[in-house]
Amino acid sequence: MTTIEAVAPRQYVRGPRRGPITRLLEDERKLALCLMLPTIVLLGLFIAYPFVKGIELSVTNTSVGVPGKFVGIENFKKIWTDDIFHIAVWNTCLYTFVTTVFKLVLGLWLALLLNRHFKGKAFMRAFILLPFIIPTVLSTFAWKWMFDPTFSVLNWMLFHLGIIHSRINWLGDPGLAMISVIIVNVWRGVPFYAISLLAGLQTISPELHEAAAIDGARAWARFRHVTWPLLLPVTLVIVLFSVIQTFADFQLVYVLTGGGPANATQLFATYAYQLGIGTGLLSQGAAISLAIFPILLLVVIVQLVYIRRAETL
């Protein structure tokens, strides 16, 4: 005979009394809002407010110390007919495109190398980051010396190797000046790509490579059909960040060439600074800065759509 023992119900023990804040935070939606609040405040103060202020400035005729009046799209009309602005647009697009391609290719190559096992791997990974860690202005000054027409160590080296017979005017020739700023940007940006892509590579299971190898896939085929598709979403996000940063680059060009010679390396940011600070025309400077926005918005939308597609594949 089965006996069923009656189990006395547990006595309800009342927990410590909860305060109004605790009760409020028990609501997940309110908790989420509280957790997001610091970020919202920071974004509002440092991103949204300057952005709105920039828009406000660009539609007025404000100059330093003189509150402006609403002038509509007058500033945009002005820069639309400004030859130097046209040069800056072309230079910025060229600069961003070329540096992004080189940073991606070299960064990926470096990431693949760093993903292998070798002695001193940890040290090497830290060492690779140096160009990215050093303040841009400082490293650019070092590059400036290397490109100096009188003291260039690059020229000295090339001359002693017998590759050149007269000095290369790195920052004085319009074409070479652009190449020089591109070189420095790539040097500075490759570590960011390499380390970020390395992080992406490490999330790919080695078993997939082993399975592909067993199926007879060679190194290139494994990269093409295993590594690259899995790395693509990460790559697109990195490229997105990099494009935004490069498009708005200022310090590097300002220190290296000041936008010269004859505006050959003038970018959006350097020209906006020249007008906004150098000439006190804050509204025109703001209009130039905002002119980046539609181009960047387009790039961001295209890339985000592509990322979504890549993730759903």
């Binding site: 100096d148 027409p149 009188t150 003291f151 005017n169 004085g172 010269g260």
Partner: peptide, 21 residues
């Protein structure tokens, strides 16, 4: 003129003169 001066900043000529170039 020295063609390298196409890229000199404000200190460029100081450096070049002091270096006897």
């Amino acid at each position: 003129f020295d063609e390298g001066a196409m890229s000199w900043d404000d200190a460029g000529n100081n450096r070049a003169f002091l270096a006897n170039t």
